[in-house]
Design a protein around this nucleic acid. Sequence first.
RNA 1: CGGAAUGUAGCUCAGCCUGGUAGAGUACUACGUUCGGGACGUAGGGGCCAAGGGUUCGAAUCCCUUCAUUCCGACCA
Length: 570
Amino acid sequence: MRVSRLVSRKHKEKPAEAQLASHIFLLRGGYVRPIANGIYSLLMPAKRIQHKIIGIIREEMDAIDGQEIQMPIVLPRELWQESGRWDSVEAELLRFKDRANHDMLLAMTHEEAVVALARTEVTSYKDYPFMLYQFQTKFRDEARSRGGLVRVREFIMKDAYSFHTSQADLDNYYDKCAKAYHRIFRRCGIPEVVSIQSDSGMMGGKVAHEYQLLTDSGEDKVVVCDKCHFYANNEVAVGIYQSEPEDLLPMEQIETPNVKTIDDLTAFTGMPETKMAKSVFYTTEKGETFCVVVRGDVEVNECKLQKIVQSLFNFATDEEVRKTGAVPGFACPIGLKCRVFVDHSVANGYNLICGANKEGYHTKNFNMRRDLPHAEVVDIATVKTGDICPRCGGQLSIKRGIEVGNIFKLGTRYTESMQMTYTDEKGEEHHPIMGCYGIGIGRLLASICEVRHDDYGPIWPLSVAPWQIQICAMKMDRKDIFETAETLYDDLQKAGYEVLFDDRNVSAGVQFADADLTGIPLRLTVAPRALAEGMIEYKVRGRDESGLVPIKEILPFVKNWIETEMQKYR
RNA sequence: CGGAAUGUAGCUCAGCCUGGUAGAGUACUACGUUCGGGACGUAGGGGCCAAGGGUUCGAAUCCCUUCAUUCCGACCA
C-alpha cells in the first residue's frame, strides 16, 4: 500500500473527546472514525489489524474443533421470548418492527440463535460434543459508551457455543478453551492478560471467568493477590476478616451525643473502625426494608447483596428506617422488625460498638453470635486493598483491568427454556449442557494499543500489525531514491511481505511522525546518505534497535528479522 | 438514568462577560525557498457560529427549549 493512496488522515493534535491512549491514537492515526455515540467506522489500518486478530482467533478455535458459522444480526422476537430474555433484558436490547409490524431485535449475543440452529441439526448423542463459533456484529444499546473502541454499542465479537452431554465433558472443554484463550492473547502480543473468577450476570450459569488485561486505564476493578496470583472480579471476590479472639464482655450503653457516623465514632471513642459494626438500610422495589451489618471499615458490595436479596433496592429513607424500629445515625441490628443480614466481618468480630436504637447512645461489646444469633450471616463485603487472601493469607489489592474476553459454563439455561434435546444410547431425551465463550475484537484491538504504545503512537506487535514493513523514502524527487525505494517496495511485495510505502515527497519529520502513528514494527528508510554507501537503514518501532543493511542483503535480512520476531507470537 | 462541562473551518481552539454581521494555528490548493524527527514565505479555497424559538433596529454573543459530545456516578456477557 502506498501512503499517498491511503485514505487515513493523521492528526497532530489530541482529539478533544479522547482520554484513553488507545482512543487518542486510533483517532490521531486515522484508524477509526466515530459515526454516532459508540458506533465507529474502521479505516484500512484498523481493518487490517482486525483481520489479523480474527485470523489468530480462528486458528485457535479451529484447533479446539470449533466450526465457524454465521448467524444473523437481526432476530425475531419469538426466539428471545422462548428464552425469556425478550422480557428480562431491558433497554440494552434494541428492538424495532419490520414492515409487517413484526417485532425484531438486533442481537446483542447469540445463545438463542445458536440453540435454534443446533436443536434442529443435532438430535443424537453420537453427534456430541460440538462447538459452533462466529465473528459477528453485536449491538448493545449501552447507557454510556466511552473510551473509543473499549466500550461501544456496535462491535464485532467472536462468540463460541459448545454443547455437551455431561458436566464432565463441559468441564474438560471449558479448560481447553481457557488454554486457547491464553494462547490467543499471547499471540496477539498481550501475554499479561489474566483469567479471573467473575459473576455470570445476565448470562446465567454458575462458573464464569473473565480475561482481564491489567492496566491503570481499565474500567473494571480486579482483586489480585500478589502472593498466590489469585484473581477475582470485584463483584465476587472474597476477603477474610479475622479478629483476635477476646472474652465476650457484657453489652452496655454509652452516651454518644451527636455521634452519628463511623468517623465521628472513631474520633469519640478512640477505637479503630474495625471495632465498629455499621448498620445500613435498604428498601427493595417491593417496598420491603432490610438491614445489613458490616464492619466499620468495610463497604457493602451491592452486587453481592443483589444476588442474596434477589431484587433491586435503594438506600432506605429515614422514615423507612424508623419503621423497622431503628434510629437513623444510632441504628442497632438488635430487635428490628425486618430482615437482618450480617457480614462475616461482623460475625467474626468481638466486642464491637454499634448503635443503641436510642438517640444519642451507642452500644459497647456487641457480639453477633451471642446477641443476634438468628441473623443471616452472608458475604456482602467489598474487598479492598489490604484485605486477606482467602487462599494463601497474602494481601489482596485492587487493580484495574479491561475485560477482553470471557467464558461461561451456561449449563442447561437455554437448552431447557428452548427445548433442545438429544436422544441418548437408551433412547431417553436430555437437554445438552452448554458453554459459551466470547472475545470482543475491537476492544482487543484497542487494548493492545492501550498497553503497547509510546508518546508517539501505537507499537503494534508483528502478529497483528496492519503491515509488517514500513518504507520511508527521503527526497522522493531524487531519481536514485525514487528508483531504489520503488524497487524495494516491489521486491518486498513479491517476496510476500505486507508493506506500507511512504512514497510522498515530504520531509523526514512528517514521514517519521506518521510512521510512528502507524506503528509498523520494521521501518526501512531509503535516504541519500546511506544510499551513497549502498545501504538501507532499518529501525524497529518502539525499540532501540536500528542499523544499516546493504541493499543486496535486504531481503534475507527482512526474512530473518520477521521470522525471528514472529517466534514471540507462537 | 442522575451530576457537571462543552458545542464556532477537516482538526485544536480564540471571540461571548461588555450584542454591530467571523478569527488564529494546523490541514488543504498553487508557486518559490527549504529538506534526516511534524520547515518557511506569498497567494488562495473552506464556517447556516449544533438546531429551533424568543429579546433587540441588530444575536456566535443575552434568554428559553431541544439535540449532540465529553467527564464523574448508576447500569453493563
